[in-house]
Simulated scan of single mutants.
Amino acid sequence: MPVAKRCKALLQNLISPLTLMSAPEARSAVKVATLVVGLLVLSILPENTYAALVQGLYSQEVPVSGQGYQKRADAMSQALAEVLVKVAGQREVLANRVVKSALAKPEAYIRKFGFRSSSADQETSLNRQQYLQAVFDDQAINRLLRSAGVAIWGQSRPSTLVWLAVESVGQRSIVNASGTLPAVFAESFQGRGLPVLFPLMDFEDAGAISTVDVWGGFTHKLQDASRRYGSESILTGRLSRALSPDALAQNERYDGRLTLIFRGMSQSVAVNGLDAVALTQLAADLVGTTLSRHYAIDASDASGKTLLVVENVASLDDYAALNKYLERITAIRDVSVHRVAGSTIELELVIDGSESQLADALALGRNLRPVAPGVQSDSSATMRYSWSY
């Protein structure tokens, strides 16, 4: 059975029993079920799944207490702020003088907006929550960030694998995708445009890593166990939960430490008495700020033209797919053909940022693989890759 059909069937089997639950319980369970399916997909895909194509970077939904002019304007400003944080990858963007000025006139950046009320199960309530849904003009947002000197992070973003060891009532365990905490992580990370994964903790994971390894933060063990997931970004943590597992989730508090391991470097933040939402927002801030420094592209740091040599472009279909692939990379402004020799094509790129940032962006995908320096037939080529489609 094709992967898509298998996943659809699995998700249906997980969700069918939810019809017997209350609506709030069902919504929470659906999030967990969807996350489980996503992780199961990883287990049957080829290794080296480096990145996800993030959707919805330029749209946002925010709660609003009314549809009057001032309340609508305030909600639009909040939605614009959250979109700018997603596209830039870090909250520091909101302190920028140019951005602050733009937040006072958010309607200039909105393509369309509308309102919705809270879900059908609350229709009888007099206090239904309303939401403003706004879709922003991506080109206008990018122009704003460039004029503010802020780097832009494109849709292709690396997934972060989360290894958490949680101590509760004297027992320690590794959090896997079937728990409630991953659903809260998924929501907070989605709000930042960050793909996030939790381990399956199946037989393979259990043989590769232990609770002691995660609690102790043993980097080599964590990196070895993470290889199957193809994630270069690893978030790990040791957390103590203040209440027993059967306590209400909203009353739980966590203490401990989170550490992001990325490219041989690690950065940590303390967790002091945070609930699940605050914990996951702290984690999203740590991941977003760190990764955006590597992948977000600063237009003011332009390298001009770069020669990209791509082998194994054997047909017009290959060329069309390669062109479409390169169009999605934020660092590339323009592509033109410099020379064609058999199945090798030389492309002249106009890029923003540095060539190392371009190499980082190309490394996120699975279709372009760098050719080893010793194999290059043209030593003058700035960058040389092989196309696989």
Results as ranks from 00 to 15, higher is better:
3 V>G: 09
4 A>G: 01
5 K>M: 09
8 K>W: 01
11 L>V: 08
16 S>D: 15
21 M>I: 00
25 E>C: 02
30 V>F: 10
32 V>D: 06
34 T>Y: 15
37 V>Q: 05
43 S>G: 04
45 L>N: 06
50 Y>I: 10
53 L>F: 10
55 Q>L: 08
62 V>S: 03
63 P>A: 14
66 G>A: 14
71 K>V: 05
77 S>F: 04
79 A>P: 03
84 L>K: 12
86 K>Y: 09
88 A>E: 03
88 A>L: 08
99 V>E: 02
100 K>D: 06
105 K>P: 07
106 P>M: 12
111 R>E: 14
112 K>N: 11
114 G>N: 15
117 S>E: 06
118 S>F: 01
127 N>E: 14
130 Q>F: 05
133 Q>P: 01
133 Q>S: 13
135 V>T: 06
139 Q>E: 11
141 I>P: 03
142 N>H: 15
145 L>A: 04
147 S>L: 04
150 V>A: 02
151 A>V: 00
154 G>K: 02
157 R>G: 03
174 I>V: 11
177 A>Q: 13
178 S>W: 14
182 P>G: 12
183 A>V: 03
184 V>G: 02
185 F>Y: 12
193 G>R: 10
196 V>K: 05
202 D>Y: 05
206 A>Q: 12
214 V>R: 04
216 G>F: 07
221 K>V: 01
223 Q>A: 05
226 S>V: 06
235 L>E: 02
240 S>P: 07
241 R>F: 00
245 P>C: 11
247 A>N: 11
249 A>Q: 01
252 E>T: 05
256 G>Y: 09
259 T>S: 00
265 M>H: 12
266 S>E: 15
274 L>A: 10
276 A>Y: 04
277 V>D: 14
279 L>D: 06
279 L>H: 10
279 L>V: 07
285 D>P: 00
294 H>P: 02
299 A>K: 01
302 A>Y: 10
306 T>H: 15
309 V>F: 02
311 E>D: 14
314 A>W: 07
314 A>R: 12
317 D>Y: 13
318 D>M: 02
326 L>T: 03
331 A>S: 10
335 V>S: 03
336 S>H: 13
339 R>D: 11
342 G>F: 08
351 I>K: 00
358 L>C: 05
359 A>Q: 14
361 A>H: 09
367 N>D: 08
378 D>T: 09
382 T>C: 14
384 R>N: 09
